[in-house]
């Protein structure tokens, strides 16, 4: 997975709570056996009508959000199904950072395994960012090493991230490779565990 250190990108605001993984990537696209190519199906039923034409009323289709790489959303983003196709679709579409007041647990885990940075900010901070991104072409910078998010005007906020996830993201590490360095401990554990 690609390491993340600092990221600078256009913000797309999605002011909805409880965005579930069925919306992020509908089930009809889960039959593929590859990991790649899911971006075209991101938010499919919101983005496209029954004929596969872009819906005018879904803001991600607006030209001003073309190239967005930072997604700002409402509370409990990524709830529902464990499908990792959701972060695959977000990443493949171009989103590297997601900011929300909270994330569903499984989705959060899945983002960290794919080099997406999921950042929790307060409701007030998220509301502010949503409003900025709805008004203008709005750019945010995310500095993972120093754990801050800022714009080029007045917004600046620190964020928390578990040390382990930060380490994995900063270095783009293969977690299985790391775990296999503990093979002796696992083997020893298995000898007494039934």
């Amino acid at each position: 997975m690609e390491p993340i250190n600092t990221h600078n990108g256009l913000v797309y605001p999605l002011p909805k709570r409880n965005v579930d993984t069925d919306q992020i990537i509908p089930k009809q696209f889960l039959k593929r056996i590859e990991r790649s190519g899911f971006g075209q199906f991101l938010f499919y039923n919101w983005r496209f009508d029954d004929d596969g034409q872009p819906r005018q009323d879904f803001t991600l289709n607006e030209p001003k959000y073309k190239g967005a790489s930072v997604l700002i959303a409402g509370d409990n983003f990524g709830c529902g199904s464990s499908r990792e196709h959701a972060p695959w679709a977000l990443l493949d579409y171009g989103f590297k950072v997601i900011i929300a007041p909270s994330f569903a647990d499984i989705f959060y885990n899945n983002t960290t395994k794919n080099g997406i940075l999921a950042i929790k900010l307060s409701e007030e901070q998220v509301d502010y960012l949503l409003k900025q991104a709805e008004k203008n072409s709005y750019i945010l910078t995310i500095d993972l090493k120093n754990q801050i998010v800022y714009d080029n005007l007045e917004f600046k906020a620190g964020f928390d991230i578990p040390a382990y996830h930060k380490h994995m993201l900063l270095n783009g590490l293969d977690e299985i490779g790391i775990t296999l360095t503990y093979a002796d401990q696992i083997k020893q554990f298995e000898q007494t565990h039934n």
């Binding site: 464990s82 990792e84 499984i106 885990n109 395994k113 382990y164 977690e175 299985i176 296999l180 298995e190």
Partner: peptide
């Protein structure tokens, strides 16, 4: 008993373990 993503499925297949908070 809990649900996991596909990266974690691969991790369990390879190591029979998971890093969990």
């Amino acid at each position: 008993a809990f649900g996991i993503g596909t990266s974690e499925v691969e991790h369990v297949l390879a190591t029979q373990t998971l890093w969990q908070n």
